[in-house]
């Protein structure tokens, strides 16, 4: 008898004051924190905190393909391994990768492939491991965003970054960046990702029900929201280098000041 406290859905997803349950406005994102270079052994890595989501991504490659029969003689392959830690969800997840994880891995892989020059690396693979440590809705979008950061951190030539976010409908209203509870209790969920070199959508899934007008409204809203996250990605990548530069300048200032005294 696996007894666990029931996860109950609230009846309403908006508070009295018109804000969402976590206090956000309809088009407000959850707090996002990004960092690159967090896993020393990897060729490139990134960490993302997106609301309660906590995700690590590491890139290895180009390297030999195992098993060997997956290798393509005319181009490299991109392999994504999206995994969730057993303790990242309400009810303990089984350790073996499930169907959901395999599907999401494939969706993210298809999404990121257009930005890479895989034809330049025949017979090899780029492997991206996405590990969700804590999950609270929108992990495939967060996973795509952090995977793009890790690829850029590895110094792999890319046409552009990729950014992803989920839009959706809760209590009849179009909102952005659904949290776990909104995803489960809401009416529609539309995860999408953009490749910035051509400004086109590279990941798109939809579950729920929406009228044509609502769908159009969602799609019109997406670029602006994605742009906001893109700015954070740019900053996170540069931050690592700018911080060191700043520290160096600061220590030099101290040194010269000390010399004058």
């Amino acid at each position: 008898m696996p007894l666990i406290i029931k996860d109950e859905y609230p009846k309403k997803l908006f508070r009295e004051d018109g804000k969402r349950l976590d206090g956000r406005d309809k088009h407000e994102l959850r707090p996002i924190k990004m960092e690159v270079g967090v896993i020393k052994n990897a060729d490139g890595s990134a960490y993302l905190e997106w609301g309660n989501n906590k995700i690590f991504a590491a890139v290895y490659g180009p390297r030999d393909v195992h098993p060997h029969h997956l290798a393509k003689s005319d181009r490299g392959i991109l392999r994504i391994f999206y995994r969730m830690a057993t303790y990242s969800v309400f009810e303990r997840k089984r350790p073996a990768p499930g169907r959901r994880e395999k599907e999401i891995s494939m969706v993210i892989s298809d999404c990121l492939e257009p930005v890479l020059f895989l034809e330049l690396y025949p017979g090899t693979s780029f492997e991206v491991f996405i590990e969700v440590i804590d999950a609270d809705g929108g992990t495939r979008c967060a996973g795509t965003t952090v995977a793009a950061l890790a690829l850029a951190d590895a110094g792999i030539p890319m046409r552009s970054l990729v950014t992803s976010v989920a839009l959706g409908k809760i209590d009849g209203e179009i909102v952005v960046d659904l949290s776990g509870i909104e995803d489960k209790a809401g009416q529609a969920d539309l995860p999408c990702a953009i490749t910035w070199f051509n400004d086109q959508l590279s990941l798109l899934q939809f579950d729920g029900d929406m009228t044509l007008e609502e769908m159009n409204k969602c799609l019109d809203l997406a670029p602006d929201i994605l742009k906001r996250i893109y700015e954070m990605q740019l900053n996170a990548l540069k931050e690592k280098y700018l911080k060191i530069r700043e520290e160096v300048n600061k220590s030099e200032e101290i040194a010269t000041e000390g010399g004058e005294q």
């Binding site: 008898m1 696996p2 007894l3 666990i4 830690a85 057993t86 303790y87 990242s88 303990r92 440590i133």
Partner: peptide, 10 residues
């Protein structure tokens, strides 16, 4: 990084 989950069982 380690985490704890629980179940109630026999």
């Amino acid at each position: 990084i380690s985490g704890l989950k629980y179940e109630v069982g026999e």
